[in-house]
Design a binder for these strands. Structure first.
Lengths: 253, 253
DNA sequence: TAGTGGTCTAGACCACTCC
DNA sequence: GAGTGGTCTAGACCACTAA
């Protein structure tokens, strides 16, 4: 694959900002200066700067030098957000968990909305309790369409990463997802599984994952024990991935 | 200001996708074809396509035509997410609310972390109950640094939009924000203010807003009644604004 | 008015996919 | 091997900012 000039320049600038060479509030050198310094054409520098603008590290507008807004944090790769196990390990925690139930069900209205599966067809549902360093953290319900459920069904419950296995052995790649976050009061059954008192607060995370053709691969509803974990997002004038929605608009009940 | 060629092309493609001309799973025409059709150079078409890739409408990788992943939703402007009133009106709801309290406080550790204000200095805090069509929905605590608090203090409680007023009359513009979302159980005082039963679940939204120089303008902690509202986000292999964090990392307690 | 970034052009070469 | 998008070049012009 090899690494590209614009990516190296972006990385170099990020490191210089982190090192304090350009503190928040200060301006970056002009594109001309940077293109001389890195010995590339101005267009290549622009590509690098566009990355910094997109992730909110830097602010740009016409006629004004680019200004540093904040110290850039490391950008997590897509998989690290999608996969609980990968995220946990990267944080230095030991992920674990048990499959509580795995079963075929008849697709209902929610499955139809989230997966685009016809009602009445089969859907494979896996229910897991997830742990972090041995402590219960989250209750996960994942739903697969029939064709994928038949593959998932054959995978060992203890497989380190379902995602990696699907990619390597079946050429199935998760590349896009849509998420909705809310809160709810723990129901009796959930509270028992998580070992918390009833009516505790839970952070709810619903998600549809797709491959690069837009085909829905799974939908999932995860419930985190309140206070263990939060979701972090940035946005800016130039890019705003965030929206408020009503629960009904996203597989609500 | 005028609108630009690449933006018009992006818009035209979005509309064609929405109209079903390129359904999810199908491929877009090649960049060469598009550049002939729109009578612009290939580079301009690329700029348009880059937008669609960035917001997850379309998937691209080397050597393969761009493929439609999903029907693009309208992208909300930054202000619409930051400002409750603007969001509500756009949804066709009538926003309302009362200031419960507005007072000067001594900056504590949380103010220091979120605003970069020295502990012991003054911070202005405004507490509001927000309503949607007359129904209580959210409890909002906003904290301003001293210099900005002195301006906000003079603003009428009933001003339609604090944001707009700060922009127009004081040249203060919100351009960036960082957010964290979690859940918590309603405390007695909050439950009383919102008119819900104690121990109801709340969706917690903490936020730091900045201007284009990276200066923190406010931090806020909002609590939504569970079930009224959810947060929606998209991510993809190419852009992932999402991270899980521990509550301590974002003004936690 | 000088300097900046934003847009746009018209090419080139390369990595990759698919046939 | 033909076709594709991704990267990169070396310019041009314009809108905007700040002095």
């Amino acid at each position: 694959m090899g690494t590209f000039a614009f990516a190296e320049i972006a990385q170099a600038l990020v490191e210089e900002i982190q090192a304090g060479k350009y503190p928040p509030g200060s301006s970056l050198p002009s594109e001309r200066e940077l293109s001389e310094r890195f010995r590339v054409s101005p267009g290549t520098v622009r590509m690098a700067l566009r990355e910094l603008v997109a992730d909110g590290t830097v602010d740009g507008s016409r006629g004004r030098p680019k200004r540093v807004v904040r110290i850039p944090r490391r950008q997590a790769p897509f998989d690290e957000f999608r996969s609980f196990a990968q995220w946990a390990r990267r944080q230095g925690h030991e992920p674990g968990g048990d499959v509580v139930r795995a079963e075929w069900r008849i697709a209902d209205a929610q499955d139809e909305l989230m997966l685009g599966v016809q009602r009445g067809r089969r859907v494979f549902r896996v229910q897991r309790v997830r742990t972090l360093d041995g402590e219960k953290v989250m209750l996960e319900h994942t739903h697969y369409p029939e064709w994928l459920g038949e593959i998932v069904e054959t995978i060992d419950d203890d497989a380190p990463s379902v995602t990696a296995l699907l990619a390597d052995e079946h050429n199935i790649h998760f590349t896009h997802a849509e998420h909705a976050f809310g809160a709810e009061r723990a129901r009796a059954a959930d509270a028992d599984l998580l070992g918390i008192t009833r009516s505790s607060a839970l952070l709810v995370h619903r998600r549809v994952s797709r491959d690069s053709t837009g085909r829905a691969l799974e939908w999932s509803s995860d419930r985190y024990i309140a206070g263990k974990i939060m979701l972090s997002v940035g946005n800016s004038w130039h890019s705003n991935p965030l929206q408020w929605i009503t629960p009904e608009a996203f597989g609500g009940e």
